[in-house]
Write a protein that binds this DNA or RNA. Sequence first.
DNA 1: TTTGGTTAGTTGTATAAACAACTATATGTC
DNA 2: GACATATAGTTGTTTATACAACTAACCAAA
Lengths: 146, 146
Amino acid sequence: MSNNQFRKGELYSFITGKASIAIARRLQKKFNTAGLNLTIEQWSVLYHLWKQDGISQQELCNATFRDKPSITRLVDNLEKLQLVKRVSSDADRRMNLIYLTRQAQKLQEQSMGIAEETLNEALEGVPAERIEICKEVLQIVYDNLK
Amino acid sequence: MSNNQFRKGELYSFITGKASIAIARRLQKKFNTAGLNLTIEQWSVLYHLWKQDGISQQELCNATFRDKPSITRLVDNLEKLQLVKRVSSDADRRMNLIYLTRQAQKLQEQSMGIAEETLNEALEGVPAERIEICKEVLQIVYDNLK
DNA sequence: TTTGGTTAGTTGTATAAACAACTATATGTC
DNA sequence: GACATATAGTTGTTTATACAACTAACCAAA
């Protein structure tokens, strides 16, 4: 069954992820305004470390859907900002375990608050059950393609 | 009304646009496999020129949600690939009008077919009315933030 | 213990995005 | 017409992504 649900302009929006780009831009602006010297991509790495500290770069790749070079460089930059530290694993010396610094721990609450605020602005006026359906559809899309 | 519809992991997916990244990657792979030497970003510019040829770089900015430097460089690269030509406007000599070459015109049918195919794969198993709701929610998100 | 394959991470290169600063042209007002 | 201001596009810089090629460490089988 081919489902040609998309008129041309809508096809374009879906492929380009217009909505998520708008969310990311708004979040970045809020970070800047708040004086958080952090890119969204860097934040997304910290996000997973706040959930579980001391995971490997490979685990960060899986969690953030990025390839290894991308994580290498994001960790490079986070290290320069003194927000994380690479510690090579005793158990497997190929692995780097990535640990948050004190400074990064302090950023969690504020930045997560800003992220929630941004999502609330994005979804203002959308009934909960429609948000739920949207989330489910996007999850299926991801599962279909992964 | 604050709508905290998001458990943490879902917040992350929404912000990062996991689904649209997956769509873009799949589309890029299909382009590569088909021997189309084209990035998704370049395709997105051609997309608007296929709808209307000879528009200005500024109009391309508005259509693609990119800033002026981004379009300058995308047009640079498309010109190197001999897919578009800059023609400075007679009416307003500040403006470049961007025209498709023969070669670019030939790419329309094939690449649009691949894009539709990709979306059909992405949305496989999702009922039409749920797709409709999802599109509407994403449009509201965009309108809320723009 | 050696060999061969796998996994973790890095480096090189090309493309792209965001922001700031810039040039050139146009336009509206006096 | 001259000046201030706005608009179209370019260039420089930093950050990020994707892919390929690479090194180092691990592991399993002979």
